[in-house]
Design a protein around this nucleic acid. Structure first.
Lengths: 242, 242
DNA sequence: GGATATCCTGTCCAGGTGGACAGGTGCGGC
DNA sequence: GCCGCACCTGTCCACCTGGACAGGATATCC
């Protein structure tokens, strides 16, 4: 068994988020990664659902980040939503602050020693994405070289880590898999076809309130906050067709 | 630059699907992978486009597979939709035929020498998923050992390959009848992610009215009457990703 | 009998959406 | 110079949506 396989095994055997964090701390320290943060965010609307964070960034910064919902404006998160391959960010790179509040964010991060980094975005199409963010106090060139040497391994480790997070999360919430009821699918299907609540009510022979009820349930199951997203998720996961 | 980086560069520089296939053929032959197939399928039941296939499987089999839409019943594809980490399939593994028509599929595949394999599922949330399927005529244990030694590199290569396919494909859609402008795509993309008009306005730096304007134009192009439908169409036709 | 799941229905209300009316700029082609 | 196109912005208003309150009826399983 090679080194990477050993690392992946370490990550796979974790049963709770705490164990997972320990495993990741161990693996990344072995790889001389001084500072990392796994951020799991919803791609949905800016509602109450909080993103969650695992890692060893300074808690002053991460607390502030989460409390102020900075993920909503973070250009790194924006880029992660769009990209499916890892990317560098910070001073000499493309992914950088473009709007005033993003510049504030970068300045604030810099005051905690976070000036540049490398991020692995991980998508699994359930309305949330995972990002492994690695940063360093080293000079950018030196950091980049270090990362590029490890990129392959770090990329794979990140994906498996995210998969483990999802597994632990699922185990926690006891939601084995997303399973829509007949009514939920029926209502969502018409919603995806562009019908309004009242239309659907008439079509399927329910009250508009009940249609709302079923769509709301579907939204909860997908962890999203709009019919738009629920319809998308249902179509993308092959549960309904339009 | 190490070997893997060289491979990734080879894949990244391809501009058309043909070049991409050549690059992949080269890379995988270097890694002593005798037989692979990249299958790109839509996840919806009646997806916008038929699946497409790149690789060096016997064309007798792949033609038959595509013609009979076997991806719709293939347990490997089912597993790929659900999993986001690579897995083995075939005789001694978990992913195997469970329904009668799936058993037929596996028997047919076996007659073409495909008995077991390893699949990397790649999700990037645009209504299609990519799978890199690698199989071998070797005995399973021997095959498994070979793959496990290369798993990390193959995994990363697969992800970058899929990203390149998407890039080439997007270039192709520019020639299709429906053609969204940059702003339209930009606004729809955020809309598909569940953002509201005001959110999007802030993100892309426009007035809410202008965001509305662009989404309306996209709606007209698709011949639909809601953001919901426009977002779905755009995602399913691969113009945007969520 | 109680827990659980699916299903059904109601009101109130802030905030989002889409249609219809306006207006404007800058660029390239004929 | 005019036309078409992409782009940008505004108001008004009916309607739709989602969240937060409610209230029910069945049926299954332990």
């Amino acid at each position: 068994m090679n080194t990477c396989q050993r690392y992946l095994k370490e990550i796979a055997k974790a049963r709770h988020l705490e164990e997972l964090q320990e495993a990741m701390n161990f693996v990344l320290s072995e790889l001389s990664i001084e500072s990392y943060a796994y951020l799991n965010v919803g791609v949905g609307t800016n509602s109450a659902r909080s993103p969650f964070l695992i890692g060893n960034y300074k808690s002053d910064w991460t607390d502030y980040y989460i409390r102020n919902k900075l993920d909503l404006i973070d250009p790194v998160i924006e880029a992660s939503i769009k990209s499916c391959v890892p990317f560098f960010w910070g001073v000499p790179e493309v992914v950088y602050a473009s709007r005033p509040e993003q510049e504030v964010l970068f300045r604030q991060a810099a005051s905690f020693g976070i000036r540049h980094g490398w991020t692995v975005p991980i998508h699994n199409c359930n309305g949330r994405i995972g990002t492994i963010n690695i940063c360093s106090s080293k000079e950018f060139d030196q950091f980049k070289e270090h990362i590029e040497n490890l990129a392959m391994m770090l990329h794979v480790i990140s994906i498996h880590f995210h998969a483990s997070v999802c597994k632990c999360e699922l185990a926690d919430t006891k939601r084995s898999s997303i399973d829509l009821t007949t009514r939920e699918k029926q209502c969502l299907e018409w919603a995806a076809k562009g019908k309004s609540r009242t239309d659907i009510a008439e079509i399927v022979g329910l009250s508009p309130r009940t249609v709302k009820f079923h769509i709301e349930n579907a939204q909860k199951k997908f962890g999203v906050f709009s019919t738009r997203q629920a319809a998308l998720q249902a179509v993308l996961s092959g549960m309904i067709s339009i």
